[in-house]
Design a protein around this nucleic acid. Sequence first.
DNA 1: GCCTAGGTCCCGTCG
DNA 2: CGACGGGGCCTAGGC
Lengths: 242, 242
Amino acid sequence: MTATEEGSALSEPTSEEACDRLAGAIERGALATLFGECTVAYDGRAASELGPGKRHVMCKPDGTVLVHTDEGQKPINWQPPGSDQSVRIEDGRLVLHSQRSNPDEELVVRFTNIDQLAVFETGETSTSLSVTGTEAEMKQRILEEPELIEPGFRPLATERTTPAGAVDIFGEDGKGRVVILELKRRRVGPDAVGQLNRYVEALERDLHAGVEIRGVLVAPSITDRVRRLLATNGLEFVALAP
Amino acid sequence: MTATEEGSALSEPTSEEACDRLAGAIERGALATLFGECTVAYDGRAASELGPGKRHVMCKPDGTVLVHTDEGQKPINWQPPGSDQSVRIEDGRLVLHSQRSNPDEELVVRFTNIDQLAVFETGETSTSLSVTGTEAEMKQRILEEPELIEPGFRPLATERTTPAGAVDIFGEDGKGRVVILELKRRRVGPDAVGQLNRYVEALERDLHAGVEIRGVLVAPSITDRVRRLLATNGLEFVALAP
DNA sequence: GCCTAGGTCCCGTCG
DNA sequence: CGACGGGGCCTAGGC
């Protein structure tokens, strides 16, 4: 039985047909997808084995490989952009091999059956995504309306560096005390307290002379544990949604 | 011009053909993919607009929707598992609408041209993924060979809870001092120090009576800044790869 | 359902 | 390049 071609899709191709087509697509910088029964092996930062099953495999022109099952938002296996793909026939079966370095990682997809191979031309990669509702927008709003934090607050710098890292917003309050703001666009967990605390302690050490530094977490809301953690560390919270 | 059908793929279908097929596939719990020129609008936790361009859209039976461009490992837009999809024709064009609640989010994909619509049967979702090289394995190794940390170290509990959260491994050293281990499977940044520090301080407060508690970060390697942060906080580092 | 932390996180940005 | 922190993070595990 020979494969039928329609547009740029092959239905039930032989391993050889699929191999040629896939290799050509990768070479040309096209986007290729396969659907069929396969096993997947990964070795790199971790290692994994995936037994036989029907999966959807996507090879992007930028070197990305994604293996999706019928569920989950994340691919069950993948290879990052910049990986090198090669295809070959082993024991009459199509094998897709992907490799990259730094870190060294490889992904091997072995097909026992190919339901479909499709090749797509993506053309120019022009239009861009515009997003709103980010932490950067929160920052902008606070810089324009510092009283959102409290009356008398004056921002002096953003991304000010400390030995522990960069502070989102650095400023002073109405009494001239140093104030550090850590911004979070969503309800925060304990990690943000650790972050804020690191900055405050680093700045206290850096400015020495027992300067009192106020650390303020700015977020839509916080969990109970975070409230307690803030209290025991002498830190504050200001509710502000992006 | 009418669509040509091959296997379960339609090449250059009309909007109506695509609409029927896609709706049927979603209804049946099949996996469907579309490739074509489209715009994408998202509104929910954030908001975004994506202008016209060729993209690959995948609808999974679990309610996931993924919109991929020709580059990047992550979809440029998506909807998480559990979302509800509906398709309709608007001004003669196919529109895929996806909605979910908690949080309320919607994704709208408007096609101006459909190169291909494919429907795949995934069948039983049996075989599972086995992974090695995880943090859990690190933990197991340390429990079996505590001397990997240091001679005399004795693990007493895993996931022991503190007011600041659960500690990876809780134990004591040869001199009977409490030791807290924070495990990381890869080279760590400053966040891990904040985490370990939170646990140590919380336990010191909890056990009170000025007990000295050793906090040890266990990871393959650390950055310079982390080394300094550990030092200033009186914490330690043990090199161990997963 | 919320909270917490891991992840082959990915990703952009800046040194 | 590495390092650092955000993300519509996603996902698994507790409670």
